[in-house]
Amino acid sequence: MIERRDFLKGCLACGVTAATVSVASGKAMAAGSFEGYPDAMGVLVDLTRCVGCRSCEVACNNEQKLPEPDEAFDDMSVFKDKRRTTEKAYTVVNKYQVATEETLFRKIQCNHCTEPACLSSCFVNAYTKTKEGAVIYDASVCVGCRNCMIACPFNIPAYSYSSPINPLVKKCIFCYDTRVKDGKPPACVEICPQQVMTFGRRADLIKLGHDRIQANPAKYVDKLYGEKAVGGTSWMYLSSVDFDKVGMDGHIQNEPIISNVKDFLGFVPMVLTIWPALFTGVHLLATRNKGGHHDHEEGDHQ
């Protein structure tokens, strides 16, 4: 008769092998399974145009009714640090020394992925990808687990650490409630003096981005960042230097983040439903001959 421990080991080994095989074979299928809503809007960001005036931060602060900043928005000393988004600022501009004599600025905000990792990671379903392309969230159901902060490949969701009672996740919502829902561009896009950002249908912006590269191949690197990154993002970028030089991951995966775990997670319900039944059966089989002993024990208690 097989020892119980050996049997378990065997089952585990089989399970892991099955999971690994299915992950490997399923990867290509899972990648980019959602092409995005056909009329989803997006923004094409041309880093070569940004002059670092911080007007976008101003517009965001006012539109989203965010708290007062630590420094005035015309204080350019903020560029000495590389900042990230916070509960008080859903967008920040950073400055990058890309060559001895050349600096570039980059505005950071939610990229509104086609298949958002934050959405996949949220177990209370707080996140929604709207047909307009915005990734929004329902703060009233957020339990503050911060899974989305870990899942986001762009390090975007911020957390209201300042709130001891009801801390929530906070991030750019593409001005969905006040603007994009009604076909208007987000506040940052509208205020930008240099039109660093072009608002339009994502499908049109992909063409526009490639046209801009083609019209000026000496100026741009031949890549539209976000066209394919993590399954595509609504916000896409053009740059005159490698994206790694402006704090972006130039080698980011093209598969959506959920592809990394989709097949493994698919395996979990199987474990939860089949394994208990299977092992209960095994247990019953293994203990069948000990029926008399069992009765005897019960008898002892009485």
């Binding site: 007062e68 005035a72 015309d74």
Partner: peptide, 10 residues
Amino acid sequence: AIFKSGKYAP
């Protein structure tokens, strides 16, 4: 007022 500068400074 929107730049939080001058008399509107933090």
